[in-house]
Design a protein around this nucleic acid. Structure first.
Lengths: 360, 360
DNA sequence: TTCGCCTGTGTTAGCGCTACCATCTGCACA
DNA sequence: TGTGCAGATGGTAGCGCTAACACAGGCGAA
């Protein structure tokens, strides 16, 4: 009697399965599976019938079963260091969506500086992570990228890398974007255009500055070192930089800050100096973070499609993991997405009269 | 011949499985499973041996297999309406982590107003979502909560609800927090304390205002309607409200804004009026969003443990889904987490001299 | 002793899906 | 007519894990 009478229904919630669909459609589960995965070798008429059945039953595939059967279980880790939340949340949203689409588990880890990043990476690798997505400023760290490259871990970065790093990335053309913004200011009639750089430690700062200089040069405007103030991407550093520019004997009619935080800081300094924005001073930023629409006047800025970028990055990453599992050589791919200039209230043509000296 | 010789190794990546552990430990896979899930009926000595084997092999369970076998596959949807990214990213991080821990798939959906929320909810339900996490201000919508309650969908909200809604929530005690902040200001020596309310449409605005009044009353300070300005949580509305307060014949020595955005706006207005913060005016906020540490001076504020809250909310949600699947009545549970007052640079005792009139 | 019952462990049968074949059909070509 | 081949479909055996039971041994109660 050891036999058994175990026809226990273990189904808890009578989920619609592929077999239910198969029965209704009059085909085998296998064929249904093929339709779901849109494989090619299925007759069109069959496909139609199966799709009909799927719709009728409201079937949706069970992810767990799918990844178990296809051994495609994948975990990727999104690594970030500076929780500039605006950037982060946009990144997360995009990444989450794509991860879901690709049946990939997304693990988010924060680390605190490069040394910590190294440890975090090692830990995560032990934990079964098979790929990394690095968001700025981690993408800038040569050592980190090297570590990952040495271990041959599929990795994608968001943001520019030094030339020669052989790691996939998703970026916008920061140089061209900065150039576009500067050209826009020139187009408005500005000639005395101040620039606030980002943290010189980061590559992206240099790239954006080159864009600014490119545009000036192309327009035949001589660039003046005194119009370039060094910032560090933070609001605080923006205050200092803006103060330097706005206490020049002859103040600029426009200031282009390398990110929105510093642009917001610039507006604040201008107001303290009783300088109207945009009436007397145009201020523009970069990134289109939340801050750009929080402050008043809202900031004209360059929009990075952050969500789309992380979307693309996760897709790139999962594809490259699959490729590396299949034994292929790890190709490195660079995706450049489009930016756009968002015109808001902080920019206007320069005041008609000769730029006045600052009132003291 | 029809028989079969299908001993095909389908393992792609020689993952360490529970059986490997079982063999090494000298027990059955089932026992290993019990250890992993820390069930109680395992001898301590056995547990130790199994744990040793797990460590030696670097075993980590396969989530897909686990949720497939236990039919615990769960998808919950985090629904949000106003992407105040700071709040959102903190929420996401906490939710993501807990979802992972609970083997739950997190789907994030944005909706745009209540009507849209209703449609989104219906869509998501069709898509196999079994529970919702509502973040402010969605938690305020009676209709939405009703819809969910009617359909008996497990739901948890973050933020306060109207009394009588029978839906689980994770909150901080906003009233007590506002009271704490006001008491702090009184403790510093302030007596003329302005208050900027949130959007009157939202419950939380009223609750915070009551806290402010509670504290004044308890300290025997008469509350003056002219010191309360109505805001709508936005920076822009904060500008207007602050301007009203700072153009009073006798301006307050401190202003408590119902969130950080409006506090930041207040600082900006103060600066435009050449009023020093905190020298001549103390400004405090609420929420401890990124903005609080972005602007200068950094804002003294109430910190909501947003990440912890979403963490707790997801846990509550998954537990209540499991309970409702098991057929239990849907208990509704309210979790109150601790807030804290973060003292930064925007607050100080009032200036010694008699509050001056605003310079015109 | 016999019965129940508890505790710790093993056995078996899936969860829902897909990889890997086998098979069947039709059709071109010799 | 047979042979080869491609395309469409089906059958079967798992993926790694756990629910639900089976069962051995110990212990107190009848």
């Amino acid at each position: 009697m050891g036999k058994s009478r175990q026809a226990v229904a273990r189904r808890h919630h009578a989920q619609v399965t592929i077999s239910d669909v198969a029965v209704l459609a009059g085909f085998s589960p296998m064929t249904v599976s093929r339709v779901i995965n849109s494989e090619s070798n299925v007759r069109d008429s069959t496909r139609a019938v199966v799709n009909g059945a799927i719709r009728k039953l409201g079937y949706s595939p069970n992810r767990a079963a799918r990844s178990l059967a296809s051994a495609s279980q994948m975990q990727v880790c999104l690594l970030y260091a500076n929780p500039s939340s605006t950037y982060l949340s946009a990144t997360l949203l995009g990444a989450l969506e794509q991860a879901r689409e690709n049946d990939t588990q997304l693990v988010v880890a924060e680390c605190d500086g490069e040394a910590d990043a190294e440890r975090t990476i090692k830990d995560q690798l032990k934990g079964g992570i098979s790929g990394f997505l690095l968001v700025p400023p981690l993408a800038d760290s040569h050592d980190l990228l090297n570590l990952l490259k040495e271990r041959d871990v599929p990795t994608v970065t968001m943001g520019p890398q030094l030339v020669g790093e052989r790691i996939s990335s998703v970026i916008i053309d920061d140089r061209s974007a900065a150039r576009t913004m500067t050209e826009y200011l020139i187009g408005l009639g500005h000639r005395r255009i101040g620039f606030i750089t980002g943290n010189p430690k980061y590559l992206v700062s240099k790239v954006r500055k080159s864009g600014y200089r490119d545009a000036l040069e192309a327009a035949g405007i001589k660039w003046r070192p005194e119009l370039v103030a060094t910032g560090r991407f933070s609001y605080r550093s923006g205050l200092d930089a803006a103060d330097r520019l706005l206490t020049l004997p002859e103040i600029p009619t426009a200031i282009f800050a390398s990110n929105d935080e510093m642009a917001a800081a610039t507006i604040s300094v201008a107001h303290r100096h009783q300088i109207d924005v945009p009436g007397e001073l145009t201020v523009t930023g970069f990134d289109d973070t939340l801050l750009a629409t929080t402050v008043w006047p809202e900031i004209t800025t360059i929009r990075q499609p952050i969500s789309d970028m992380s979307h693309a990055a996760i897709d790139l990453l999962t594809r490259s993991i699959r490729a590396s599992r299949a034994g292929g050589a790890t190709e490195c791919e660079h995706l450049t997405l489009d930016y756009s200039l968002i015109e808001r209230e902080s920019s206007a043509p320069p005041a008609r009269r000769v730029p006045r000296d600052r009132i003291t």
